[in-house]
């Protein structure tokens, strides 16, 4: 992403003196027990049902009342099956990709919100992979509804879901080049002139961070 734009602003583009308001990225550490609410139960149940818990789950993060399990991609399908069958997370609400080009070796993240109807609970799974090796095992065999969601994430981020029954583009045309929602893919647009003044395209306007 470009930091420059209208008025030649650099860096944060903030000339107000309030630059100190810019917050850094969230901490990458694990949360400490007790997690609070039903999150401890979920973690306990999973540890009981899945002996390899500590080797498969990299981090457990509780933030803003939501529980996120960071899972190694090799173990994703195993953990997903246990979450579905033993912990009764019957539904996966899809996949969302996130692209962090500056996290070298961990550029691409797939986020899976899970829902348990039996226990009325929600948790989230996260899998991180390198851009150079953007492969994640598909969860379509666990939750069939992930089919289109994985196609969308492939389409938009270029994450390849191994084992997907038909991983093709879904929203963009089949012959499209590139993956539009990655951060290195320009938004596009053209400057618009009105009464002699020119307004740059949205991705070239003055930006605040």
């Amino acid at each position: 992403m470009t930091d420059s734009g209208m008025f030649g602003a650099r860096g944060t583009g903030d000339t107000s003196g309030y630059g100190g308001l810019v917050r850094t990225a969230a901490s990458t550490g694990s949360s400490e027990r007790p997690f609070g609410g039903y999150f401890d139960d979920v973690a306990d149940d999973l540890e009981r049902a899945y002996p390899e818990f500590s080797s498969a789950i990299e981090r457990v993060v509780v933030d803003r009342g939501e529980l996120t399990l960071h899972i190694k991609r090799e173990k994703l399908v195993e953990v997903a099956k246990i979450l579905r069958d033993s912990l009764k997370f019957e539904m996966c609400m899809g996949v969302s990709g996130v692209h962090y080009p500056n996290n070298v070796g961990r550029e691409l993240v797939a986020v899976y919100p899970l829902l348990s109807i039996t226990n009325n609970r929600r948790i989230r799974l996260e899998v991180t992979v390198a851009d150079s090796d953007a492969h994640i095992p598909s969860l379509v065999e666990v939750w069939a509804g992930n089919n289109w969601h994985e196609r969308e994430t492939f389409d938009m981020f270029g994450i390849i879901f191994d084992g997907h029954p038909g991983l093709t583009r879904i929203l963009m045309p089949d012959d499209w080049q590139g993956h539009p929602q990655r951060k290195d893919y320009a938004l596009g647009g053209i400057p618009v002139e009105y009464k002699g003044a020119t307004i740059p395209a949205p991705d070239n306007r003055r930006s605040y961070k």
Partner: peptide, 16 residues
């Protein structure tokens, strides 16, 4: 931490 979303994704019921 900025003034814009870093990433927005909608889980659309129609899509699913």
């Amino acid at each position: 931490g900025g003034t814009r979303p870093y990433r927005m994704h909608f889980r659309e019921p129609s899509f699913n």
